[in-house]
Write a protein that binds this DNA or RNA. Structure first.
Lengths: 196, 196
DNA sequence: AAGTAGTTCAGGAAATTTGGTTGAACTGGT
DNA sequence: ACCAGTTCAACCAAATTTCCTGAACTACTT
């Protein structure tokens, strides 16, 4: 029977755990409400948590020397988000992670995660699977950035993640896809600049 | 002669320091521009700085379990603001501090503050005075909350801080004074609910 | 030299959010 | 039954954000 414990369910979808193991796992998480525009990760601070999005939407981005920001990741319901570089290596973050809507996350601290992994090999397996998926996902993105042009990247994105397109502002999507908002606007409206 | 170094001046107004001491003190501060709606303190993050407002306006507030927010403090030019509980004890903040306008602050880090206090007894005295004033101020506020009704608190506030009333949104003032925005709106418009 | 893919800048329209007001019904204490 | 104050919902104006568009520009190909 599918319980209404999202984290336990998530775990069960990936590793063969008992109900008790799933319950123990989910007990390590804390539910936190995050208001729109609130940051859950900021540069300079060491990231304490890995976050599962229960409700809402987030954007992870970096800001370069001249104020230009690049979106690193989005996350909506049932996705995970944090600055993994900071979280995993426990060093200061370089990214911002901000709520795009009023949201609810389930967060697990780095210490608790370590404890879980030590306690039960299946949890270790789970996090390994997560990491592998994340890596695979990122590799796909790198490839797409190298091989596709702006318009192709956009159409691939709306096909793969239609739910996200509807929920994030266009400037965020543009900066995720590596183009200007103006150019994205033009792609959408199919009317490319031309000298009449 | 009054210099145009606001922090050095501030210090001199409170402890008998030489020009060199004042200069050394002010050198520990860093000027930072903050945009309207930007947070300088967020829950969970350990507060690194004590902030002197050079220009602009800030609001410190907490949000309780059921989304209700209470304003803890305001700060405008020549005031200080931070989450002192987090700053002093170096533990995670529970408050937000947000810019109500585009602003400029002078921030000093916790480490630099420690170094200053160690280096010169007068700096220690200065921070002691600051803390005492803050405590006295808070006590007044507690008393006023216990003994006055909403309307009295409002009129006392506009008398004591007319500059602030003009610059902060009404919902922020209401939540500072411990009443709903609707009720404050009614006090202002003198037209209390009445059954005709 | 001309086309392609994309950027920058600026103005403006459209959509959303914010801040404030008001009426009406309600609560808890006296 | 009254007082001080809250809650809820609707509403409005103003401010802000988001998006769109034109025009001029850059850098690479061909």
């Amino acid at each position: 029977m599918p319980e209404d414990n999202p984290i336990a369910n998530y775990l069960k979808r990936h590793v063969p755990v008992s109900d008790e193991e799933a319950a123990q796992f989910s007990a390590a998480f804390r539910e936190v409400k995050i208001r729109k525009r609130q940051f859950i990760v900021q540069p300079e601070f060491i990231v304490k948590n890995r976050n599962y999005v229960l409700k809402g939407a987030f954007r992870a981005y970096v800001v370069d020397d001249k104020g230009q920001d690049s979106t690193i990741a989005f996350a909506i319901e049932d996705w995970w988000i944090t600055d993994y570089n900071s979280y995993i290596l426990q060093k200061p973050a370089t990214m911002f992670v901000v709520a795009l809507e009023d949201s609810i996350i389930l967060e697990i601290s780095h210490e608790k995660e370590q404890a879980l992994k030590k306690a039960n090999h299946l949890y270790e397996t789970f996090f390994r699977i997560r990491a592998e998926r994340t890596a695979a996902f990122m590799q796909q993105r790198i490839i797409s950035n190298l091989t596709q042009n702006a318009e192709e990247r956009y159409y691939q994105f709306i096909e793969k993640y239609p739910q996200i397109v509807q929920r994030v502002p266009q400037y965020a999507l543009a900066s995720y896809l590596g183009m200007t908002t103006e150019f994205l606007s033009r792609i959408r409206n199919k009317r490319m600049t031309k000298n009449s």
